[in-house]
Each structure stands twice: as structure tokens, then as C-alpha cells.
Design a protein around this nucleic acid. Sequence first.
RNA 1: CGGGGCGUAGCGCAGCUUGGUUAGCGCGCACGGUUUGGGUCCGUGAGGUCGGCGGUUCAAAUCCGCCCGCCCCGACCA
Length: 477
Amino acid sequence: MAEFLTPQSEDFSKWYNEIVLKADLADYSPVRGCMVIKPYGYTLWERIRDELDLRFKETGHVNAYFPLFIPMSFLEKESEHVKGFSPELAVVTHGGGKELDEPLVVRPTSETIIGHMYSKWIQSYRDLPLLINQWANVVRWEMRTRLFLRTTEFLWQERHTAHATEEEAVEETLRMLGVYTDFCVKEAAIPVIPGRKSESEKFAGAVASYTIEAMMKDGKALQSGTSHFLGQNFAKAFDIQYLDEKNKQQLAWTTSWGVSTRMVGAVVMTHGDDQGLVLPPHLAPIQVVIVPIWRKNKERGAVLEAAKQIKERLSKLVRVKLDDREGFSPGWKYNDWEMRGVPLRIEIGPRDIVKQNVMVARRDIPGRDGKMLIPMSEIEGRIPAMLETVQDAIYQKAKDFRDGNVRDVETYDELKEAIQTGFARAWWAGDREDETRVKDETKATVRCIPDEQPGGSGTCVYTGKPATEVAIFGKAY
RNA sequence: CGGGGCGUAGCGCAGCUUGGUUAGCGCGCACGGUUUGGGUCCGUGAGGUCGGCGGUUCAAAUCCGCCCGCCCCGACCA
């Protein structure tokens, strides 16, 4: 069989680029660093978006929209924030043919403009908490870009909240990390390690950043969502104050958190194989594809009719597509849909019609092993259940892979070895400078201080100092 | 910004070293037929400022100079 894709083992990076293009997720744009998200990729993003949005609304949030342009001076109000973002800002200096009095930045994130608005909207403790989410595009002028993983413009959701007390804001920050974790596990079938960001990795302007870290199939880490406790930093900068029950002015506590189109890349690199994408059934734009088969022209009508009926019956339950394209052999279609990661394929031909069966093939199990005959009368009962089986199976597979590539290490040498193929977990008591040195020496960074701690204490893998926490180290995207 | 690679049909490439017919090949695309249980076969056809500009030459895809763009690796980042 001819090779359609560079095998992952040969060049993972090349595999990724090829599959994103070939599966029609995205295409390069004429503008450097930007991408066009094609319908198939966008539908996948819509599925991610819808699932997250549902969860946001369940946790009491509403959607709104804030403008793309932000006055430059807003960014400058929070010193850490501007320091972090200024190297990657796109700045508009002209409008309507005239130079602007004040340059506008294209939002790299919206803490500042939302902070400004919140200060207007929040007067009393009765206005709190304020919980607003927006789905938007943002622009960060990155030096090096990759489809979905890091593009100059990307889509995301950013949710910004303001609270009366520190406890409530911290609770919100952590609660949402839980929501992201739940989404990743249940919908994207991606095992993640939730935890706290180290000093040097945290968000510009945050008191503390939290993250969910996922392991890609090449052993590298992908930060797949972040949640920030902003303390009163932005409340101070934007004067977000409220009157409490005792008629005293108080500064609010704010949080922000986001998930981006990078999640698409995470799905691709967590589940994909040498045949192409493997999409989790809960997010797959097409969950079941029906491929009709006929030998002679006179068989065509009956097969197509049966295929249509199956589609009709299934379409009430799942996202199903009938591939009735002419001029492509069934084998060609099998490969095509496998490349696109469709979780289940139903093959139906003359033999099946006689026996009232259909052949169902699982994307996650290649070849004959993944095929089974099921009676046509049972498809409504069996297909949705099989989708759940696939969903669970690919999660378990990803989790086994992840767990098999996280090593507990005690020495620096062991750490260096472990991060060649995955993550290292080690006692850690280093500061910002230690982190930088570790990065320079190993190319790996502290991905997070995981929520799940062994307890007790140990010796820091780098400094040798007593440590009370373990950290996850890995090479990152 | 440093290092590497590349730019010839929609995609992937050959041709360039050693300048010389009408610039080829595979895939894809269009049409006709054949076929379809794991990437069918045959035929016909459309499609090119050879990345751009300049130079050398009787003659440039090919040699020289400058520029532009893209991809990969590194420094920065969700």
C-alpha cells in the first residue's frame, strides 16, 4: 500500500503538518503565521466550543462580546501584563487614512478592556460575582507558528470573573480548572494533569496560574487550558471597586481563564496514528460514515436504498454521513474516512442486504480486528453504544500511554533521561533562576506543580534543598 | 534574529552540474467507458509569467547578483 502520511515514528512534526492539511482541518493563509480553518476543522472546533459553552452556562456564566481594539494605554496600566505582552502586540496606528492620536492594539487577551468595563459596571457587592465569557479571536505576534498549536491569530474563549473575596476568586479559578479537566477527559478523551504553573511560566499579571497539561504522542507536553487567579492586580489597575455590606469601598478579586483552538491540535496529537486522525466520538464532526458497496450496476439501487434507510434511522441518534460519491472504490473511501478520523464506519453491500447485516468497523482498531457484523435491526441500539466504547477505549489508550511515560525520578540525570520520552516527576524547591538553568541545560520546563501530590517531603532534584512538592517536567510545545 | 532546506501545472517532484527543439513525470482535475467487499483500469483533454527584478549570452528554468516568500530546527510564547 502506498504511503499517504509520513509515519509518526519517522518524523512526528512532519506527520502533524501533513495530517492537518490532508484531513482538511486547515490550510496555510497568504499571511505568514495565520491559518484558514477549513469546514471540517471548524466543525471540530464548534463541537469543542459547544461542549465548553454548555459547561460554562451550567456554572452560571453568560456570554458577551468585547471589542477587538484596545487603547495602548490600557495595556500599560498593569506593569507585568504589558511587559509580558508588548513583544507580541499587533498595533494599529492609522484609521480612516489618518494617524490615530493613540495607537490601538489588537487584543492579545482582554483582561484590560474587560477590567475597564467591570469598573464601570461594578458598584456594590450585590453586583458580584460578575461572570462573563466571550468567544473571540486574539492576535499574538509569535516568532514561530504552527497550525493550531501557535498561530498569529487564534480563536478562543476567555472568561473573566470578579469576586468580593479572595477565597471566592481562588475557588472560581480552581473550579474552572476542574471544568476544563472534565471536558478534556469526558469529551476530548485526553488525560490531563491539572496543576499550578511555576513562577516563570505563569500569566503576565497573575498572582497564580493553573494549567492542564497533556502529553502528546511524541512525549511532549501541551498546555491545553489555563486558569488564572489575578488577585487584585487588575482591580487596582482598573479601579474595580465595590461597596460592601458595611458601606466600605473594597477592591474586587478577579480571575481569567481560557481554552483556544490549540485544543484541536491536542486532539490530533493525542489520538492520531499513521493512518491519520482518530477523533473522539463526542467531538467528531462525523461520528458514523456509511460506505455502500456494489459490484454490478443492478445492485446499486438496492444497496443505496438500504444505505439511505440506515442513515435515516441513525441520523436521529448520531452524526452520520452517507458517502455515495461515484467513482471511488469502497477501499478508497475506507482509507479516506480513516484519515479523517471518523470513529465508526458502516459497510453495506449486496451480501449484507441478503443476510440483513451490516459490517461495522472501528477506527481505533485497525484492520479486521476492528470489524464486526451486526444485524440491521439492531443498529439503533448498538451504534450509539459502540461510539461510547470507542470514546472510552481511546481515552484509556491515551491514559496508558501517558502513565507509561511519566517517570518518578530522584536524580537530575534520571530527569534528563525521562524527558527524552515523556515527563519526569520530581521533588522541586527551585526558584525562577533554577528553572531557567534547568531549561537551558535540559530543554525541559516545569510543566506544573500537579494538584495530586504524594504528600510528605523530599529532596529537590536540582538544588538538593528540602522540598515539599513534586513538579512535572517535560519538553513543551 | 541565527542555522538548514525549498520555490518549475491544484499537489508532489524531475530537468539545472555541462545554457540550445514545442519544459517533462506521477497524483489530482474534466469528459467517455470500465469497475467497486481495503487506495480499479483504459482512453481523451484542460492546466505553466519555471518565485520576482536585473545582469551575462546569438540563446537562460539552467550561469551571476540582488530581492521576496514558504517550511523545518533554535531563542520567545496559549
